[in-house]
Design a protein around this nucleic acid. Structure first.
Lengths: 204, 204
DNA sequence: CAGTAATCGGACTTCCGTTTCCGATTCGAG
DNA sequence: CTCGAATCGGAAACGGAAGTCCGATTACTG
């Protein structure tokens, strides 16, 4: 017999009651809102309230908080991956494309404390379910970086993981010192990355 | 009458029982060890155990965990301040002195997860008792930076708080991606800070 | 050495957020 | 429309870490 214990098992619901599917979406939406604003330390109760739903309903759709968080964080990384992929298709030189991607990613991070926390790394997010998206993002940045390197626009010894460190660091900085804009910090970072004598100013 | 309720009121104990003074020191020492290794999320129980002392004794000397943490974090910042002040007295040009100070501070941060957490900012440390040390450190860096700027070694628009951001970011990066050395990241950061055409390589 | 007040230790209480459980409710097939 | 199964809601159980309390112990004073 197939008594469904937890909806999170049924990927996208064939024959799932309409209200259940609706509520799952509501919860996801609410969680995005709440976690983006308050960070991953927000409470499940808040998510339920924001969704206009009972606590039990939240747990019916997502077995644990960690899992719910992983879902959203993955979505956040995928968003950033998309931005990076999109930037790569733009015209212009590789350096500008890289910068554009970083700008987009940082703007996204600036608006989402949840993904930011995951980026900064301190917080526990279900690794099994969060890593794939992270790796896709890494790969996307790597492609961008490879282009720029081939063009001689970045230092030879600058690696993807160095970029990761930068994003990690800037995420942390956004959390504690929100008064100082990330654009400012990015300017200095770009100066440090750009190969010496590779065209004009580091910031586009 | 003056029945002492909590030792933390009596700064440095005149007429305090010998074992009490000894234990206070032990606890402080233990806390430094534990917090440096595990970060500020370590438990008071662990501190007590490491000190070879009961939980009650820890709380006799420090009213709350936050207060104990603030004490240690302040010490950490003061250590870094001293390093900065010391670097300023060295011979050589201002840029090298600034770099030396940053190196020393980062090495210190690398070894102390507690101070690192405070630097990265996410964690709650009693602000009233933690801020002064933080500001002293900021001032010390500011002096170093002023020297370097007067010498034309750093970009005009680079501020102390930008340095703060960098340290904040690098602290966060150390926590999550410990495999990538901070020296590496520092190289890029320095390149970004150094004024264009101001002497040879950014890293000394 | 005895008396006394302060200190010690750690079991216990409190607090707070996560997770479970189950009676009430709602959907939708027949 | 009726019935059964799935879903909902939120009260209560659970768990873990901070902080309290008090009997036992120990350092100093006379």
């Amino acid at each position: 017999m197939a008594t469904v214990v937890n909806m999170s098992d049924v990927p996208s619901g064939r024959g799932v009651r309409a209200d259940a599917r609706r509520n799952r979406e509501r919860v996801l939406q609410a969680a995005q809102t709440v976690f983006a604003k308050q960070g991953l330390s927000a409470q499940m109760q808040d998510v339920a309230q924001q969704a206009g739903v009972g606590l039990g309903t939240v747990y019916r759709h997502f077995p644990t908080k960690e899992r719910l968080a992983a879902e959203l964080v993955s979505a956040g990384f995928d968003r950033m991956t998309t931005q990076a992929l999109h930037a790569r298709d733009e015209p212009g030189d590789a350096w500008d494309r890289l910068v554009a991607a970083l700008r987009a990613n940082l703007a996204d991070l600036a608006a989402d404390a949840g993904t930011r926390a995951a980026m900064a790394g301190g917080v526990a997010v279900d690794l099994d379910h969060g890593e794939p998206a992270r790796l896709r993002h890494r790969a996307a940045l790597d492609a961008l970086l490879a282009d720029a390197r081939a063009e001689g626009a970045v230092h030879d010894d600058f690696q993807v993981d160095d970029l990761g460190m930068m994003l990690c660091g800037m995420s942390a900085a956004m959390d504690s010192r929100s008064d100082v804009g990330w654009e400012r910090q990015l300017r200095f970072v770009l100066r440090g990355i750009r190969a010496v004598g590779a065209g004009p100013g580091a910031a586009e």
